[in-house]
Design a binder for these strands. Structure first.
Length: 296
DNA sequence: AATGCCTTCAACCGCGGGTGT
DNA sequence: CACACCCGCGGTTGAAGGCAT
């Protein structure tokens, strides 16, 4: 494990930290009591974790379990705050933490759950086994928000959510199905990223799906056709009514909308906007298509 | 090759809620 | 009830590496 790959954090700089809240306590003229209090506390490390620290933490948790992080940090002999230990374990060292790019399945789920719950990252993460709230949050901020910016709208706006629901998500549903079909061809090389589809020359397939639309109800079946985790998640989401529209097949209308049914939007402005967006894809505007792919 | 800008993501910060005393 | 402690969440930071010039 490349534990020292971690970036950021400003280097390993020992500073005095309020162990309770992890606040820095350097700078300024501290009252005498505070100085004495600080002197009693061990010097705490900040910044990237070392391999040794990782080993200590992993071994300690293997022997004693996780939880009670402040006392764990002390008992393990780590010069870190409990919060830092918890974060390192949950986001990096946990054996079941999944590395690498988000799959189309996962992206689809994130988009859907975010439209439902907003920035409830931990809640969203509960539905993506092996993924952390931090990872999902970073994905959202770096990929999704970037694309919202490209579209000149706010990621939290109804307009962007509609764009995701009616354009991006159907796109991912299709990509998920295609990825299942061609899993052995592309998945390994693409690490589960849709880039694999592009590498496989599947632009036409995607365009065709968008242009022709998918028969009502088929989109859900596509998601579920993989028979794997995506299927289970899709089934669960469907059972819970998580998919848009009360019929449980909201994505069908989504795909239809993306295929040119934008006239069904109540908001005429959005209707035109989405129609234009769809047209730019369907008519083979490669620049627009590439932008769509980039955001994945 | 050098430089500067951009993207990514591990880690930190601040806060609120839960629990124990 | 009040307080302290602990945990977890969401937002933010900043260094590393990639990319463009």
């Amino acid at each position: 494990m490349a534990a020292t790959q971690s970036r950021g954090g400003g280097g390993v700089v020992p500073v005095q930290v309020d162990e309770e809240h992890g606040r820095r306590r350097q700078g300024g003229a501290a009252p005498q009591e505070e100085e004495e209090e600080a002197a009693e506390k061990p010097e705490l490390r900040r910044g990237p974790w070392t391999v040794d620290e990782d080993h200590i933490l992993v071994n300690y948790i293997a022997d004693n379990g996780e939880g009670r992080w402040n006392s764990l940090a002390r008992a393990a002999g780590l010069k870190r705050t409990g919060k830092s230990c918890r974060l390192r374990w949950l986001n990096y060292l946990r054996p079941d933490v999944k590395r690498g790019n988000f799959t189309a399945d996962e992206q689809l789920l994130i988009l859907d759950l975010h439209t439902r719950w907003g920035n409830r990252w931990s809640k969203i993460a509960q539905h993506l086994p092996g993924r952390t709230d931090n990872e999902i949050k970073n994905y959202w901020r770096t990929r999704v928000q970037k694309h919202a910016k490209q579209l000149n709208c706010d990621a939290s706006s109804k307009r962007f959510k509609d764009a995701m629901r009616y354009l991006w998500m159907p796109h991912l549903v299709d990509a998920t199905a295609t990825a299942d079909d061609e899993y052995h061809q592309h998945q390994a090389a693409a690490a589960g990223n849709i880039d694999g589809l592009l590498a496989g020359g599947d632009v036409d397939h995607v365009q065709h799906a968008l242009a022709a639309g998918v028969a009502a109800g088929d989109d859900m079946q596509l998601v579920m056709s993989g028979g794997g985790w995506a299927a289970a998640q899709a089934q669960e989401a469907n059972d819970q009514g998580l998919w848009p529209s009360s019929s449980g097949h909201g994505l069908s209308s989504s795909v239809q909308a993306a295929a040119g049914g934008a006239g069904q939007f109540e908001d005429p402005e959005l209707s035109g906007w989405v129609q234009g967006f769809s047209d730019s894809i369907i008519t083979g505007n490669l620049w627009a298509l590439e932008e769509i792919w980039k955001m994945q």
